[in-house]
Simulated assay, not measured.
Amino acid sequence: METERQKQRKEEFLKQQEFFRTNAVLIINEMVKMRKEEIERTEAPSPASPLVDEFLHSIFFLGKINNPEFSPECILDDDDILLKELKDNYPQPFVLCSSQVPKRSPMSYVLNMIVNLMGQENEDTIIKRLCEFTIKLKPGKTKHLVSSTVCVSQKNSDRYYGVSMSTSGPIPGRIMIAASCLSTWDSNVAGAVMTYYPENKEKTKKTYFDGTIKLPEEVRCQAFSLSHRKEMPPCRSCGNLFGLTTSENREWPYGHCAEAESLSNFFKKKDEVREQAQPESDENRKMATESVLKELIKLLNMQKFKWDRHFYTLQV
């Protein structure tokens, strides 16, 4: 029989979990609003957007693996009009959130949309708008769907952005880091992260593979807090992965920080810098990749998610 204390813990847990649904609705409404803003600016012929499509799948997938589970219909339970609009324009995420894994976490798509609207060169405006939206989200104790940092990677005037993983709890975060390594991050960034992932309790690197890189000194890679808009030094993990100079000793989960996505976007457009930041070794990369895939499958099984071995992409 449940004790009073157990009941209180259960009620508190369910209360905290409700922040997932609350934040999901806020983020979905923000993306829909920005898409309408984008349509007005560009006179786009269709209300649908591949970016919004993949974003919705990411949100719905995280709802699917959440405890307790939130279906798309449960998330949007209070807005029948929005639910119908999204089902009409974006039918695939409602179906495939139960079988396919997203390539990115939700706030990555929000940042992507903001950059599209504001213009890639307008760093201050981009960070300001992202911060203003982030503080509207309900953090709770577990910060459901909330990114804590944004990062800018830059050489000359070109800037490329990324956010930290907008997941709560260790398992969803580890799932999304693995998925990003296997499906969307630049191979140099993925290799660096896979050097440590799946990490052991001591957070030591693999003995058989070293894909870590050293970023050229002329490249700026600067993270900012989304709650205070202050510059943040790289953590020890990012120092180990990318050769960033830091006096910080704290190690966040490898691949969690905004630097990974920002540098990935940077390398995809800057081949000459990418060539300078070659990994220590590419030997045994296949073995490292297989270990990440094995870990991803294990984590999905723990969440009782039946993966069809596809990462979600809009089928046109």
Rank of each mutant, 00 (worst) to 15 (best):
E283N: 07
G140T: 04
Q120A: 08
V219F: 00
T125S: 08
E275F: 08
M1C: 04
Q100I: 01
Q278V: 13
F224N: 01
A277Y: 08
E199C: 06
V163K: 07
D77Y: 09
M113P: 01
K304N: 15
Y312Q: 00
Q315M: 09
T195W: 02
M31Y: 13
K294M: 13
V189Q: 02
G211W: 07
N284E: 12
G173H: 06
Q315C: 09
T22A: 06
F70L: 03
T3F: 07
S153R: 06
R104D: 07
M31I: 12
N66D: 01
Q154T: 11
E54I: 12
S183W: 01
L51A: 05
P93C: 10
W185S: 00
M118K: 15
Y312D: 01
V95F: 14
M34N: 08
P216Y: 12
L26N: 11
V152A: 03
E251V: 10
K84M: 15
P45A: 07
E11I: 01
K141C: 06
E290V: 09
P102L: 11
P234K: 06
N66T: 05
L117R: 10
W307L: 03
K87N: 07
T125E: 09
E261P: 09
P172H: 06
V193W: 02
K141A: 08
M194K: 05
R174G: 01
T125G: 08
K206P: 11
F55A: 02
S99T: 15
S164R: 03
M287L: 14
G162L: 09
C131A: 06
Y197K: 02
K201S: 05
S264D: 01
Q276E: 07
I213W: 02
V163L: 07
K143A: 03
S262Q: 04
M118L: 14
E123D: 05
R159V: 10
P68T: 12
P216N: 09
M176A: 11
K205T: 12
N23K: 08
Q100G: 01
F209L: 03
